[in-house]
Structure formats: structure tokens, C-alpha cells
């Protein structure tokens, strides 16, 4: 994988290497915008993922809902977030996972919510 253009620490820019690396995963997840695909995903998640030719590493990250790992493998939140249209978890939970923080800590310390 070519070097990315990251110049800001802990900020993965969605540049050429990441867009290439994550293409299949993002395509699989973005497909969940379609109701028929959501049904297929719910019915047999592994089979749905296999349609898109994900590697074992990518497939495992998706099936374990390891958001941090998905982004490391080139997932982009705008696309992989559609997995939460099946799971119905809030985006703040995905954010907390990115930041490796407990959800309440994330809401309080990162977002500045009074909880």
C-alpha cells in the first residue's frame, strides 16, 4: 500500500490508498442502502459479504462490527455507517469505538455532552 497523505495525526484522509484498499468493503456496506440487500444481509451475513469479494480480514472486521479495524482497512464512515441501518446503533457508538473510548466517556469528554 502506497503511503497515504496523512499529515494530521490520527486523522485518516480518504485518499487514493484508502479508497483502493477499502473499495470492496465500502461497496458491500453501501449496498445496504438497498432494502433487498439489507434483507440478504440479515438472512445470511457471510453470504452477502462474500458477494463483494472481501478478504477474510475484512470480513471478520465487518462481522465483529470492529469499527476501528474497518476504518484501518480502508472503510469510510459514510459508507460503512449503512451497516447501522441494519444494526440500529447510534453513530456516537461508532465514534466511541473509533476513539477507543467507553460510550459515556466519549459523549462527555469528546462531544462535551452533559451526562
Amino acid at each position: 500500500m502506497a503511503d497515504t497523505q496523512d499529515t494530521i495525526p490520527v486523522t485518516p484522509l480518504f485518499d487514493r490508498p484508502r479508497a483502493l484498499r477499502g473499495y470492496k468493503m465500502n461497496k458491500m456496506a453501501n449496498g445496504l442502502g438497498n432494502p433487498a440487500n439489507r434483507e440478504a444481509f440479515v438472512a445470511d451475513e457471510a453470504a452477502y459479504i462474500d458477494r463483494y469479494g472481501l478478504s477474510d480480514e475484512e470480513k471478520t472486521a465487518v462481522m465483529q462490527r470492529d469499527w476501528h479495524e474497518m476504518v484501518r482497512l480502508g472503510g469510510n464512515l459514510f459508507f460503512i455507517l449503512k451497516i447501522t441501518a441494519v444494526d440500529f446503533i447510534p453513530i456516537t457508538q461508532v465514534g466511541a469505538a473509533q476513539a477507543s473510548m467507553d460510550h459515556d466517556d466519549f459523549l462527555r469528554d469528546r462531544l462535551g455532552k452533559n451526562i
Binding site: 456516537t92 476513539a99 477507543s100
Partner: peptide, 13 residues
Amino acid sequence: HQLQGSRAGYINR
């Protein structure tokens, strides 16, 4: 806002 990476949740009021 930042949705991805370990700086996720970054807000600069």
C-alpha cells in the same frame, strides 16, 4: 466534526 480515526468526536467550538 470528525467521524473516523482515533480523533473521532473532535469538535472545535
